[in-house]
């Protein structure tokens, strides 16, 4: 504290400070009424600049295409290398997926081939099992039996002879002959698979005609032994032989496929 210098009048006691306006009152006073003082005008100009900058910056930050324009070189380099990494990754992924696609296409081709083969096989087995009709070259054996002397074993001989000669599908009077077909003499008639058949007996056989016909005609063979019983035998070679008698496929009760 400095002593008041002599000779100088005591500084007049400061007038009592007016009570400081509260913050809210000061704010209100600053806002209203508008005063066109120099301070206000200067502040207005600077705030105008601030508002302008604010708006520009908000717009620039919000828009996508200008986001890169203001970026620094090192940021741009980073973004670029990120993009390159990303594109390399996507390229890898693409080639992986293409490989996968090729693989799948190949496997679907293979599946198609396997399906085709199994269909083919099903048809072949169907012909053997008698579940599908068949047609092709072959012979027709017609046996007229006026005396009723033809018995089941003679027909069975004929069928076996034809089979041995390579007949692939056989039917007798509309009954398909398969592996399990039975020939039985019953009440003076012939039953094939429990179905009575009567003369004339007509055997349709699909196979190589050049093999089938001699097999029947060999000396002491089927034709001769039938003719010895006063039966009339005729072997013809039609253009196509149709074997259209069917057997229903039976599920075996006990035998299961072991493969």
């Amino acid at each position: 504290m400095t002593e008041p210098t002599p000779g100088h009048p005591e500084p007049a006691p400061e007038p009592a400070e007016p009570p400081r306006p509260t913050g809210r009152a000061a704010l209100r006073a600053a806002l209203w009424p508008p005063r066109a003082s120099r301070g206000q005008l200067v502040a207005a100009v600077l705030l105008f600049v601030l508002g302008l900058g604010l708006a520009i910056q908000v717009r620039a930050a919000g828009s996508e295409d200008t986001a890169l324009r203001g970026a620094r070189p090192e940021d741009l380099v980073r973004i670029l290398s990120d993009l390159e990494d990303r594109s390399a990754r996507l390229e890898d992924e693409k080639s992986t997926l293409e490989d996968q696609r090729t693989e799948l296409e190949n496997s679907s081709d293979q599946a198609e081939e396997a399906r085709r083969q199994s269909e083919e096989r099903e048809r072949q087995l169907g012909v053997l099992a008698g579940t599908v009709a068949a047609e092709g070259p072959g012979i027709t054996l017609r046996v007229d039996d006026p005396t009723g002397a033809v018995t089941a074993d003679m027909l069975l001989d004929a069928v076996q002879e034809l089979r041995a000669a390579g007949a692939e599908a056989l039917q007798i009077n509309g009954v398909r002959v398969v592996a399990s077909t039975s020939f039985v003499d019953h009440n003076g008639g012939v039953h094939v698979d429990d179905e009575r058949i009567r003369a004339p007996f007509v055997v349709d056989a699909i196979g190589r005609p050049q093999d089938l016909e001699p097999a029947l005609n060999i000396p002491g063979g089927v034709v001769q032994s039938l003719e010895n019983k006063q039966a009339t035998v005729a072997v013809t070679r039609p253009e196509t032989v149709t074997v259209d008698a069917l057997r229903s496929a039976e599920q075996p009760d006990y035998a299961q496929s072991s493969s």
Partner: peptide, 16 residues
């Protein structure tokens, strides 16, 4: 008050 008006004016002009 005039200062606040200046701020508002700046934002508006910047946007427009």
């Amino acid at each position: 008050m005039i200062a606040v008006l200046g701020l508002v004016l700046g934002v508006v002009i910047g946007v427009v």
